[in-house]
Write a protein that binds this DNA or RNA. Structure first.
Length: 477
RNA sequence: GGCGACGUACCCAAGUGGCUAAGGGGGAGGUCUGCAAAACCUUUAUUCAGCGGUUCGAAUCCGCUCGUCGCCUCCA
């Protein structure tokens, strides 16, 4: 609310109530929706990891103008539209590793609660009915604009909205809209109609999280008017502070412009996942701070893919090492690795405590990766060396677990890449080519061996010769 | 027009008062290797859009200028 970072103290010690605006289910989701979902998924995971009991509520708006328009276009019911795109949303989110919220309320299941909220607002003099509609009277709520730092007078003078003569002020917004014939509607004291957009979040958040709760999130485009209106309704209704901490994620941009439906410059999650491994997309979204804009481009996604590949390549090395390293104690320079291992968790916590700085965490991960590789290059052996490598592996897995990335085996990573890059070669055929090349190498027939390697490279497969055999990887980047 | 955010190397990006300005990608050179790949090492910003100011000290705070973007209408 201050527009600055503040120390986090939950309202109830050890417990965090978080409400995040979900989607309006009228179309498939694009990468912008993914960013919001991933950001709050990580906030939730991190808070839980640090021991908070988190109740995460994420709503689905299943009735509004866009859904009605879509239903008319597809000649199906609004329920069918909402159901279809909610299902699409969940499928996209699951692929991106976004967990389900604890409570996922639909607007249409809470009409009763919304009607009640509106009645109270009218009783308290904050709202007025006109011809079957009900409006919130912004002028009655003196804190209006405190979140978006807007002055109601400035808003009036700069208003681009068509003025509705029935409203007392152009800033007043609908709590309840009367329905036109043929539109879905619910009974209310003001006649048949449906709820305005903002009221669902007030009614549902107070039902599930209470009138005051800790974190409210969503995309930065929701700050005004949606969240400003939520504050007005909720605080007018309860007389209490609505939300302690507001968290808004920045936009995905394309050529520096916000990715959005109306600009038409959006990429759907589905289309992106056709070209990139889901983990690549998730990593990409974590590679910049959640409040910063992040530019979508193939270059960026490819860099994310390279970074993840670097991670799995090292995991492969550590696994090989732990399987093959001897027991004879052979020390290797390890002071830097040991130092990093000792401080790693603190660095991770500090970065995440500082407004969820995932980009910084990724930096730490690659520092550790480098130290592990350096250590392995020195070819150490014995119990102590193995312990260090295991410790590094476990730490990386712990952090990866919180961010929900880096949780595959290298083999799963490459198999998945093989699919996403549509490489037309079965793993058994691949192994057959590797064996043939190995035979050529044993005969020192380097020309034949190189031929096979080049042939596979042309298909996007890289071979790595090691002491005890040849490993394959998928070419990335 | 009002309000707000941002501008760090060839690219992405962290850093918001003080140790050598993280990390990834790319480039150059090297070690290793049958050759590769991977990995590692060295190198690639005496400088943080520009100009002033505050301070013992600023990329970091303040002011101005330039540039980019966002919100003010549905929007993640």
């Amino acid at each position: 609310m201050s527009g600055e970072k503040e120390d986090f103290v939950s309202l109830v010690p050890g417990k965090v109530n978080m409400y995040v605006c979900g989607i309006t289910a009228y179309d498939v989701c694009h990468l912008g929706h993914a960013r919001s979902a991933v950001v709050f998924d990580i906030i939730k995971r991190y808070l839980r990891y640090r021991g908070y009991e988190v109740t995460h509520t994420r709503n689905i708006t299943d009735i509004d103008d866009k859904i009605i328009a879509r239903a008319a276009k597809e000649n199906i019911s609004t329920e069918a539209v909402a159901k279809k795109y909610t299902a699409e949303y969940y499928r996209d989110m699951e692929l991106l590793g976004v967990g389900r919220a604890d409570i996922e309320p639909n607007a249409t299941d809470h009409i009763k609660e919304m009607v009640h909220t509106i009645e109270v607002l009218i009783d308290k003099g904050y709202a007025y009915p006109v011809d079957g509609d009900v409006y919130f009277e912004v002028g009655k709520f003196c804190d209006y604009g405190k979140l978006s730092k807007k002055n109601p007078l400035d808003l009036l003078s700069g208003a681009r909205v068509d003025v509705d003569e029935r409203k007392k002020s152009p800033l007043d917004f609908a709590l309840w809209k009367s329905s036109k014939p043929g539109e879905p509607s619910w009974e209310s004291p003001w006649g048949k109609g449906r709820p305005g957009w903002h009221i669902e979040c007030t009614a549902m958040s107070s039902k599930y999280l209470g009138e005051s709760f800790d974190i409210h999130g969503g995309g930065a485009d929701l700050i005004f008017p949606h969240h400003e209106n939520e504050i007005a309704q909720s605080e007018a209704y309860s007389g209490k502070r609505f939300v302690k901490y507001w968290v808004h994620n920045g936009f995905i941009t394309v050529d520096k412009e916000k990715m959005s439906k109306s600009l038409g410059n959006f990429f759907t999650i589905k289309d992106i996942l056709d070209k990139y491994e889901p983990e690549v997309v998730r990593y990409f979204l974590l590679s910049a701070h959640y409040r910063s804009p992040i530019e979508f481009s193939d270059v960026q996604l490819n860099e994310a893919e390279l970074s993840i590949d670097r991670y799995y390549t090292t995991v492969m090395r550590t696994n090989d090492y732990l399987e093959t390293a001897g027991d004879k104690e052979k020390a290797a320079p390890s002071t830097e690795l040991e130092g990093l291992l000792a401080s790693f968790k603190d660095k991770f916590h500090n970065a995440m405590n500082d407004d969820f700085n995932t980009a910084l965490v990724l930096g730490f991960i690659f520092e550790l990766i480098r130290e592990v590789n350096k250590f392995l290059d020195a070819k150490p052996s014995g119990q102590k060396a193995k312990m260090l490598v295991i410790q590094a592996r476990d730490l990386l897995a712990e952090v990866g677990g919180v961010l929900n990335i880096f949780n595959k085996t290298p083999k799963e990573w490459y198999s998945s890449l093989m699919k996403v890059k549509k490489i037309d070669l079965s793993e058994s055929d691949l192994q057959e080519r590797i064996n043939a090349r190995q035979a050529a190498r044993e005969n020192k027939d380097w020309a034949a061996a190189d031929n096979i390697r080049n042939e596979l490279l042309a298909k996007g497969i890289i071979l790595e010769d090691k002491k005890d055999g040849t490993a394959w990887k998928i070419k990335v980047g």
